[in-house]
Amino acid sequence: MKKLGNQTIMLNNPPYILETSSIVGPKEAGGPLAKYFDQCLEDEFWGEKTWEKAESKIIKENVNSVVAKSGIPATDIDYCFAGDLLNQCISSSFGLRETNIPFFGIFGACSTFVEGMCLGSLFIDGGAAKNVLCATSSHFCSAEKQFRFPLELGNQRPPSAQWTVTGSGAAILSNTNLDKKCPQITYVTPGKIVDMGVKDANNMGAAMAPAALDTLITHLRDTGRKPSYYDAIITGDLGYIGKEILTEMAETKGYNIKNNYNDCGVLIFDKETQDTHSGGSGCGCVGSVFSGYFYQMLKEKKINRLLLIATGALMNSTSSQQGESIPGIAHAVAIENLEK
C-alpha cells in the first residue's frame, strides 16, 4: 500500500468484497429499497425483551448470515471490525461475543461501517489477514432512548430531524474472490474531524456535511480523479438537508456532483409516505443500504465505480446538554469492479 497526497491510501492488492448481508426493521422494509435487503423484520423487538438485546440479535444474525452466504468457514475469518451507536458499543460486542473471531470494537458513529472497511482493507493489503469481517448496526428505539427521549413521550420531531435506521450491514473482505468477480476496494480515505459549529442535534445532516465535503475533496485531490470518474458518489446519512448542502458546497469549490451523487439516508425511506422528515441516519443506514442495494448494483455491473463516504456525528447526549457543537467525520472507500 502507498500513501497518496494528504490522507488517501492506495491499495496495491485491492481486497475483494466477497459477500455482504443486511437485516432491516419493519419501517425500512416499508421503504423503497425493501427488496434488496436479505431479511426484513416484522417487529422491532424480534422476540427479545429489550431494544438493546434486539439490536444485538440483529447484528449477530446478520454476521451469521454473511458468513453463511460467503461459503468460507467462520474459523477462516481473521479479524472482525464492528461498532454501533450504543454506549461502549454494546450491541456489537454483546452480539458478537460468541463468534470466536478476534474483535476490534470501533466507534465512528454512523461512519463506523466504512471505518471498518478502511481498517479491514489495510489489514488485508498489508498481509495481516486473509479474510476480515466488517459489521455495524443501529436501532431506532435504542437510539431514541439513549440520545433523545422515551418513545412514549408526546413530542414533535422538527422537519430537520432524521430517523435512525433499524438495521445492520455486514461485509466480508478477502484477498481472494473465489472466482465470484467481486468488487474491490482500491483506495481508502480516512476523514478528518470537522466541526463547523452546528449544535442542533435535530439537524445532523448539516453538522456532518462539512466533514463529507472535506473527505470528498481530499479524496479527489489525492487521487487526481474527477467526480465524474465515479458512477456513483454515495454518502452515508446526510439526509435531504445535508445532501443539498454538500451538493451546493461542492459546486462552489468547483466540483460538480449533481449527476452521480446520492445519500443512503435519502434512499432508504420514502419521505412522503413514511414521515421520516430529513431521511434516515444511524450506522445501520449506510450499512444496510450498501450491503443490500449498492453491493447488488456492483455485482450486476450496473455500477462499476462507487465512492462510498460514510458520515458520522461524534457527539453524545452529555455533550449536547453541555452545549457543545457537533463534530462530524466522514470516511471514504473507493469500490470498483476491476475484473470485467
Binding site: P159, S160, M196, G197, V198, N203, A206, I241
Partner: peptide, 16 residues
C-alpha cells in the same frame, strides 16, 4: 463557522 450556520439556517425547513 458563522457563515456556515447562517447558511444552514437558510437551508433547513421551518416547522409548519
Amino acid at each position: 463557522k458563522q457563515e456556515y450556520l447562517d447558511y444552514v439556517d437558510k437551508k433547513s425547513p421551518n416547522s409548519p
